[in-house]
Amino acid sequence: MGNQKSKGNNNVVKFNRWGYIFLIPFFVTYLIFSFIPLCSTIYNSFFENYRSGLKQIGPNFVGIQNYVTLLGSPEIWKYLVNTLIMWVGGFIPQITIALLLAYWFSDPSLRLKGQRFFKTVIYMPNLIMASAFSMLFFALFSDSGPVNQILLALHVIKEPYKFFQYVIASRVLVMLMNFLMWFGNTTILLMAGMLGIDSSLYEAAQVDGATASQVFFKITMPILRPIFVYVLITSLIGGLQMFDVPQILTNGRGNPTDSLTTVIMLLNRYLTSKDVGRGGALSVFMFIVTGILSLIVFRINSTREKN
């Protein structure tokens, strides 16, 4: 008996070994492409290290000078606010529409026709490269572009509306693009969560005479919370790193008045002088900001759960 048992343990250990071996590729890839660059970014952020023309300046150790300059300049806070405004503005419609669609798609009593077709169509915008999507919008909304032409022809406006010269209009365009690109993806994630909810719960609710909104808020949402938090945090991280859409739309200028410039676009501007030091400090700053915001989101959701 004892012999048998130890053999069993042995098997478990052996299987575990395979588990570790199968994990090696992930860890090696992570180490080379994520962990080492992460450490070298932090290391580099303490140096003055850039190129003036073709001449290399540094690396000279300057302590936290890069952080002091970065956090002491008003523009970094402005860019952070820009980023958050554009993320929130895109995320609110995105999550609302996605929840609604996911709810409809996963509700068996609605018996929606052509679900497959619609699921494909709403995911489509995500397949286009963000830069191409951005170029498309730039052409559509330019002063003599099709949108202005249509509005002029319908006599809605008398002369072309200059979308890219107004802060609100250009920000709304960025939000619209982010919303269009990501609501399909979010819908699919939420739908997967909703389909995982035991249908007997819905049946029980129906028997008890719950209304549709009661079912949604008392059953669907609480059970969906883990997926919901996941969507929120991944979207937040993606949103903080917003780059391609505003970059292409404004040709890297963040016009008008720098109010479309995101934090990562600032990182890109350091490229002219290959400024590794300031770039490193900025990246570390973003790392910390992302960490803090993710923690806050996570906290808020888990305390609510306790209540």
Partner: peptide
């Protein structure tokens, strides 16, 4: 002011 901000982002020296 904005011009100086952009210029110093581009050329730290």
């Amino acid at each position: 002011e904005q011009f100086y901000t952009l210029a110093l982002q581009r050329y730290p020296e």
